[in-house]
Amino acid sequence: MSGHRTYRSLTLLYPKSFRVRYRDDLVQHHHDLVEDRGLVGGWLRSGLDLTVTVPVYQLESIMNSRHTALVLNLVTGLLGTAGLALVLVGFPIGLVLLGVAVVIAVTQRSELARSLRETSPAQRRRRFAAAAVLAVLAAAALMVAFNDDEWGDRGAVIYNVSFLVLAIGSVGCFVVALVGRPRTHGSMTR
């Protein structure tokens, strides 16, 4: 018994996308190694390879563009929702959402920076659209703050804060869409 089941189980440590595509090939390769070089020789090669590649591939998976785009969209979405919540629901929920957006933006700042550097035309279009929607909402919040006296001072503060959140989100989206440049296919890593 060459421990193929053990090796197959260990391949669960790889990112799903890699595992789904190459799991059978990896196990077949390990099987060939064990047949050619013996149990110890085969496992030595496969085990060392596993130890080195699992953290590298996991890290690459975390840092891939889908993840960076997700972080950016999440922060943008939360900013928009926070602005809307401030207008419609009031301070507590809006501020909580705003806080969550800020925390994610700060902790994932490297992903946001990466997303800023690399983008696709479709992503750019979506970001311009998000900037436009947030700008309209910001303008609406500002108009209500100026024209509606029924809300009193507290209402005016809510609308002003909403305007600020939505305006910052809109400008942020616009800047990200403007400076992001298309990904190049030549960036091949080891």
Binding site: L26, H29, V52, V54
Partner: peptide, 12 residues
């Protein structure tokens, strides 16, 4: 090259 190194390169 071990199995994953090879298939990682092939994937890229």
């Amino acid at each position: 090259m071990g199995p994953a190194t090879l298939y990682g390169s092939l994937k890229r």
